[in-house]
Nucleic acid binder design. Structure first.
Length: 705
DNA sequence: TTAGTCCAATTTTTT
DNA sequence: ATTGGACTAA
């Protein structure tokens, strides 16, 4: 397909700062691809001197795939990756300027939290005084704003100096030779800012930089780009302020709104034709996003026919919702939509459980994208810790992790003493463990047999990096210790470990070093989880599956048919964001907008009248984002009813507001029966949900939805 | 000092 | 419902 004028202008613009405002479905990926192709073919830029920054690893992979399609030759060596992945590759070469060894590793969220907890415990600060999550969130907040501990604004909580704790946390990380995710960005900024020699090398590395999803960059990333591109100024950013959904991660929409003032002389390109969705879907999405005032006014124009009007289905509870979703998926499948072209999206991960159960029961092949990622699983982290020890690249966190797995009679105190002894020794964890082979002192003596085992197996493992892990886990008793969780659970975990071994084998085949493999594991934390549930019985081809994922994960993707589930007050908008005020609410609305604009042909919204939360039940109102929309743009079940107040027949829809003489105001959630026997379910603001005989209820209509 | 039992807090979203 | 943390027995 040809590019349209705006796309072509953007693709063929020369150097200098370029801002591409690209609405949902406006072909921005194609434009980027063509721009890169044009830079190479017409401007003779060497491919390896082009850097493309994407938001997810998946997007980076997609970019590479499409580049090789366009220009062949494996994309010609164009460098692409996430901010984090690219930062890590910079830091691998230059970390020593910051006092880190080149072999530093990345700490994941779990270990990060454990480290913070130990830090607070060592200072006798209880979690009631200062919640670890709160401290961590504040530190992250500083890092997103590119503020190191020495320049962060002092912050006290219950007389505790959080800035001092931030500094201590960094010290602790450095001591463990680890960086957290935010450090990857922040430390790269420090390299560019504080180390002129390194900065010069990094700046000279690329001639052109392109950034996707620019609306979701935080100040640290913004600074990262400014510092990297300040000389050549060949920076192209692509984004859409209506799709900014990462404010909680420090993203600031102003970066895209203010781009022209930061980069003088920037050219602006607007892609305002939507090629993805039917006009009906786009009308609905536009109606929703129009409710936000803090946005660039823009026209996103449909290029497709009206199509089917999106439907809003109100369900009894989350299981009824899940069943109706399954029915819709089946229906679309009968219409000829492939499973892989359908997605069920939700606000929170826990919503996936009932959906998984019902979809599975309906024998629809599915997969959950996200959730607990492969590399975050306990057994995988354990196995990787053993593997790191085997390859001599383990650190204190690895050793601590497996010290008492399987049980070796080492408890919390013993663990602590082992870590202290290791620190005193001044050796790496792997080297220190080797010295214990002849026996150790105190708790470390309990590691002697493990030390001997590793000593015996190491040389074998070094020669064949893909082998060895399974043998070590078997011989040290780890695999057997899994049995304590029950046969089925243990088998699943052994299978995961087997998958890890296969993964390692592939990586080894590619010539990847052990440290590179750990890097990949750290950056790919959140992989896909394939076919949970009874996948074996469906005999589906790989990839022929419906995707279940969070709204955030759906960013940048498109599907023929989309279900947005749980469109309720408290869930979308989420309660936590409502507590954050108007900015939080705007972001929730954008999230809904992002979800709707994923759909090409069919869109179904569902909400439940009742939802089980922890143990107890909740009765959410329909989401404020859709409750007021006319049935012409969002269809729903309608009932013709004669109501006391107007006295005439009228269409009373789900979502209509009514008043009852004693229960007060409420919203119609459902209708059953016919004629005189029609009963309506009404969610009253102050009186809960009631089922009323329409004929006798004396309802007064406030507004018709 | 460790291991097992009971109780509490937890969940918004991700690199 | 699950999981980490505190408490208690050995």
């Amino acid at each position: 397909m040809q590019l349209n004028d705006a796309q072509q202008h953007a693709a063929e613009a020369g150097g200098g700062p370029q801002l591409i405002l690209a609405g949902a479905g406006s072909g921005k990926t194609r434009t980027i691809i063509h721009r890169i192709g044009h830079l190479i073919a017409a401007n003779h830029v060497a491919p390896h001197r082009i850097l493309a920054v994407t938001f997810t690893n998946k997007a980076a992979a997609e970019l590479r795939a499409r580049l090789s399609q366009l220009i062949g030759d494996d994309g010609g060596g164009v460098v692409s990756g996430t901010f984090h992945a690219i930062s890590l590759s910079f830091l691998r070469r230059h970390a020593e300027a910051l006092g880190y060894p080149k072999s530093f590793q990345v700490i994941d969220a779990d270990d990060q939290k454990a480290l913070i907890k130990r830090l607070l415990k060592a200072r006798n600060i209880s979690s009631d005084t200062l919640h670890p999550g709160y401290l961590l969130a504040w530190i992250e907040h500083c890092k997103h704003a590119a503020l190191t501990a020495d320049v962060a604004e002092a912050q006290a909580w219950n007389d505790i100096d959080m800035r001092e704790l931030y500094a201590a946390y960094q010290q602790e990380l450095l001591h463990h030779e680890r960086m957290d995710f935010s450090d990857l960005i922040l430390n790269t900024v420090r390299l560019l800012k504080e180390h002129a020699d390194v900065a010069a090398l990094l700046r000279a590395r690329f001639d052109h930089v392109l950034v996707d999803e620019y609306q979701d960059t935080n100040p640290a990333q913004h600074m990262w780009l400014q510092l990297l591109c300040s000389e050549h100024r060949n920076l192209t950013v692509v984004g859409d302020d209506d799709q900014s959904i990462y404010g909680w991660r420090g993203a600031d929409v102003r970066h895209i709104l203010d781009f022209e003032s930061v980069w003088a002389g920037a050219a602006v390109h607007r892609l305002e034709h939507n090629y993805r969705s039917t006009a009906a879907i786009l009308d609905l999405a536009n109606a929703v996003i129009a409710g936000n005032s803090d946005r660039h006014i823009k026209q996103l124009r449909a290029t497709r026919d009206a199509g089917e009007t999106p439907f809003w289905q109100i369900c009894q509870d989350e299981y009824d919702e899940a069943r109706r979703i399954s029915a819709a998926l089946r229906h679309w499948h009968q219409q000829g939509v492939a499973w892989r072209d359908m997605a069920v999206l939700y606000r929170t991960a826990r919503q996936s459980l009932p959906i998984e159960q019902m979809v599975n029961e309906a024998e629809i092949p599915y997969r959950v994208i996200g959730g607990v990622g492969f590399f975050e699983r306990m057994e995988i982290k354990d196995a990787l810790a053993y593997w790191a020890l085997l390859h001599g690249i383990a650190d204190a966190l690895h050793l601590r992790r497996i010290a008492n797995k399987p049980k070796r009679g080492i408890g919390a105190v013993g663990e602590q003493r082992i870590v202290e002894m290791l620190a005193v020794s001044g050796m790496s964890a792997a080297d220190w463990l080797d010295t214990l082979a002849d026996g150790g002192v105190g708790p470390s003596a309990k590691l002697a047999s493990l030390a001997r085992l590793i000593g015996e197996q190491r040389s074998d493992a070094m020669q064949q990096p893909d082998m060895g892990l399974g043998r070590l886990l078997q011989d040290c008793g780890y695999l057997e210790s899994l049995q304590a969780m029950g046969e089925i659970e243990a088998a699943a975990r052994r299978e995961n470990i087997q998958a890890l071994q296969d993964y390692i084998a592939i990586a080894a085949g590619e010539g990847m070093t052990p440290i590179e493999f750990l890097d990949r594991a750290a950056l790919l934390q959140s992989g896909e989880q394939v076919n949970r549930g009874d996948g074996a019985s469906h005999n589906e081809t790989d990839g022929e599956t419906v995707s279940l994922m969070s709204l955030h994960r759906a960013k940048g993707l498109e599907f023929t048919a989309v279900v947005l589930s749980g469109v309720e007050e408290g869930l979308l908008p989420h309660q936590r964001s409502l507590d954050e005020g108007p900015a939080g609410l705007s972001e929730e609305r954008r999230l809904l907008y992002v979800g709707m604009t994923r759909a090409k042909d069919y869109l179904l919204l569902t909400s439940a009248r009742m939802r089980r939360n922890f143990g107890d039940m909740q009765f959410p109102q329909p989401s404020r984002f859709i409750a007021q929309l006319a049935p012409e743009i969002l269809a729903r079940e309608a009932v013709v009813a004669e109501i006391a107040n107007p006295g005439t027949d009228c269409e009373l829809n789900i979502g209509s507001s009514v008043r009852h003489p004693s229960f007060g105001e409420g919203v119609i959630l459902g209708v059953e029966g016919a004629g005189d026997a029609v009963r309506v379910s009404v969610e009253f603001r102050n009186a809960g949900t009631k089922r009323l005989m329409l004929k006798y209820a004396a309802l007064e209509i406030i507004s018709i939805a």
